[in-house]
Design a protein around this nucleic acid. Structure first.
Length: 414
RNA sequence: GGGCAGGUACCAAAGUGGACAAAUGGGGCGGGCUGUAAACCCGUAGCGGUAACGCUUCGGAGGUUCGAAUCCUUCCCUGCCCA
């Protein structure tokens, strides 16, 4: 067993491509390396897709290297066409800035920026003030359009259309690398594999401008065993912000993963030692559920903290386990709504309440749910479309609504 | 700027005056089987209504017509070819 983080990252499946494997490995096995990963400010929260780079940064940080997270306040103004089928909607500057702040705060939970051993910077600081003609002369001249057009990342876009603004994205990202190289001595950029071209552009730029050799590393773009993009939930992306995806649902995402994804996920999204992962990976049949529970607990714990993870686990086992324990205690993590006692006493139509708590999107959907036998109150199937929720349904732990096999919502009556 | 082809529901893609709330596939959702898995089977499909039925959809705005996703005008957007 080697104690080089590079080996560990490789073993865990973090590495798709490197600019120079021998050099990168040597570098990471030596003294402190300053490295960076860029994050787009396209939304108010990061999602599961960003978890791979975050975990990789944490591994490197634990190994004594210095992370820089670049929040893309500048690059997001332009929009990266790499691997995308069409141009993303342009965001205004204010939204980008707000997103950047939110993402910065979120990353801080994992990386604990102190401005010294762990840095967060916004590329708006150096990108927005750029002078167009000066930039073209100093930086633009180093880029070959012929080469850019040949790049895999643009292939799809050359068929479907690529605007000039997006075509510039690569130059900006390359310039980011140059900037953090100059300012902080950053010598390694990492990112998703779709970033390979952009990252290499930076490596080249630094070589041409500074005559220095810096490195690049990419992470595989994850798809699940069933070939979906990783991190998709019923209601959209698996956001890391607990306001957007509460810890219970976050936990459920991991529990519900495909059997075949358990080991890769354990390697990428937990810090469990490889021996432990090997043991969990050897489980068969229904025992795999244990591995999923551990995966879900560990992953939830890293993002939302151990307490939230424990609560989510308790709520899940109360809802799905054989012997429900003290419901009141264990259900506390489950998504819930409060209604008044008076309102309950006068009766609430099921269609209405299911819609209200967003277990269904419309009244029609709620009716269909009943007709198809997918609506449950306190785990009893609803048979009659006219059934009404009233005091008879109230249990000591409230009222448990359920849509389909596993979408729960708890009503608390006050 | 010129020529051509297009813009249909979550996505892809039919439809080109009434039978269109709109085929088909994927995805979604529900049920069954199971292990809160996969695969498979069955069902479902805008919104409101138990239903009959009503209301709002086919890039935007106008118009023709008893009647338009389908025809006309205009605007916006995209691709290809030419400049």
């Amino acid at each position: 067993m080697s104690d080089n983080v590079y080996d560990s990252l490789k073993e865990r499946g973090f590495i798709a491509q490197t600019s120079d494997e021998v050099a990168v490995r040597k570098m990471l096995g030596g003294s402190r390396v300053t490295f960076y990963v860029g994050y787009d400010s396209t939304a108010t929260s990061l999602h599961a897709g960003s978890l791979v780079p975050i975990m990789a940064m944490m591994h490197l940080q634990r190994a004594g290297h210095r992370p820089i997270a670049i929040v893309g306040g500048g690059t997001t103004m332009v929009g990266d066409p790499s691997g995308k089928s069409e141009m993303r909607q342009m965001l205004d500057e204010e939204a980008i800035r707000a997103n950047g702040r939110a993402i910065h705060a979120q990353l801080n939970n994992y990386l604990h920026f102190d401005g010294k051993n762990s840095l967060a910077v916004d590329n708006a600081d150096w990108l927005l003030p750029l002078n167009y003609v000066g930039f073209l002369r100093d930086i633009g001249k180093h880029f070959s359009v012929n080469r850019m057009l040949a790049a895999e990342a643009y292939k799809q876009r050359l068929e479907r259309g690529l605007s000039f603004i997006e075509f510039n994205y690569q130059l900006l990202q390359a310039y980011d690398y140059l900037t953090v190289y100059r300012k902080y001595g950053c010598t390694l950029q990492m990112g998703g594999d779709d970033q390979w071209g952009n990252i290499l552009a930076g490596v080249d730029l630094i070589r041409r401008v500074e005559g220095a050799k810096v490195e690049a590393m990419t992470f595989p773009l994850l798809t699940t065993a069933s070939n979906d993009k990783m991190g998709k939930t019923a209601s959209g992306a698996l956001w890391l912000d607990p306001e957007l995806v509460n810890p219970y649902d976050f936990y459920q995402y991991w529990i519900n993963c495909d059997d075949r994804d358990v080991v890769p996920f354990l390697k990428l999204f937990t810090f469990l030692p490889m021996e432990e992962i090997g043991r969990l990976g050897a489980l068969k049949g229904s025992e795999i559920r244990q591995a999923k529970q551990i995966l879900a607990f560990e992953a939830t714990s890293i993002t939302h903290g151990e307490n939230a993870a424990r609560e989510a686990q308790a709520a899940a086992s109360a809802a799905f386990g054989k012997e429900p324990g003290d419901l009141d205690q264990t259900l506390s993590a489950m998504p819930s709504s409060v209604i008044s006692h008076d309102r309950l006493a006068s009766g609430i139509s099921l269609v209405e309440i299911f819609m209200e708590v967003r277990l269904t999107a419309s009244r029609g959907e709620a009716k269909r749910l009943i007709k198809q036998g997918g609506m449950y109150i306190n785990n009893e199937r609803v048979e009659n479309i006219e059934q009404v929720l009233n005091e008879d349904d109230l249990t000591p732990s409230g009222i448990l609504l359920r849509a389909g096999k596993k979408n729960y919502h708890r009503i608390i009556v006050e």
